[in-house]
Nucleic acid binder design. Sequence first.
DNA 1: TAAACTATTTATAACAATTATAATCTAATA
DNA 2: TATTAGATTATAATTGTTATAAATAGTTTA
Lengths: 145, 145
Amino acid sequence: MTQSHLKEALDTLKETGVRITPQRHAILEYLINSMSHPTADEIYKSLEGKFPNMSVATVYNNLRVFREVGLVKELTYGDASSRFDFNTSEHYHIICENCGKIVDFHYPGLDEVEHLASHVTGFKVKHHRMEIYGVCPDCAGKEVH
Amino acid sequence: MTQSHLKEALDTLKETGVRITPQRHAILEYLINSMSHPTADEIYKSLEGKFPNMSVATVYNNLRVFREVGLVKELTYGDASSRFDFNTSEHYHIICENCGKIVDFHYPGLDEVEHLASHVTGFKVKHHRMEIYGVCPDCAGKEVH
DNA sequence: TAAACTATTTATAACAATTATAATCTAATA
DNA sequence: TATTAGATTATAATTGTTATAAATAGTTTA
Ligand SMILES: [Mn+2]
Ligand SMILES: [Mn+2]
Ligand SMILES: [Zn+2]
Ligand SMILES: [Zn+2]
């Protein structure tokens, strides 16, 4: 599963003429295997054993490259640092306001809202962003003593 | 209309024991009258004629105070600076990817999505965030030569 | 193959939004 | 009036991210 994701991702890089360097391979591998939504710094730190001389700029640069070819999505939350999501299928996120956990969930696209917004504002709609905030089961459990 | 909004806002401050200083009065007035979604720096610059010595920290501090008592909502968009919305009624935003214009629009709350997300993830849902991205009529017009 | 060119990485400096700190000022209270 | 708490100011610090330039590695051309 993750192997085929990695293979597909490497193919995408080849097709778009982006060189596959050891650093890029490792960042992609980490994104796919982590099954989470790491920050650039988390990726940087987790790879410093393997690449002691890797620059943090390399992580940022390559995440930007991956975003540009559609391999990852960047998730921005206010002041904190961006998180990166290996782009498998369309999905939304629900975020715990207590511990910051981000969980995927699927829901059909919000076509109706997009349509109405376009109608009342005259905008040409491209896409939307939606996420839900709340308290995760772990944190809710801890609240009850 | 804006007068009553200002009056209500000042009442809210009184009720919550927040002193009404000239700076706070001016920031609130600006937020209500601007009918837009200014950044802290825009507010700061627009008031420097009236308050030549006002510190930018004062703007940030007071916007935080206003947010904490529920008078304004902070809108965060990735790397750029936060924008602030005087909190009238619940509404969503549609944003032009070309010029950055932010336009309000109304839509009933997305209760169904919240409910499903809660069901499949076990989260206790608090609220959600949704905005739509596209190209505004002005920018779409310019594209056609 | 050698030379030239291009992409990538590294190290480091710069940037920009925001926050922290400490001193000063203002207003409320005793 | 003296005391206290709250607010503002000026400035420094922080932090995530980007820019820059030199070094390295890979690719293409002669
Ligand atoms: Mn995800
Ligand atoms: Mn608004
Ligand atoms: Zn949690
Ligand atoms: Zn526009």
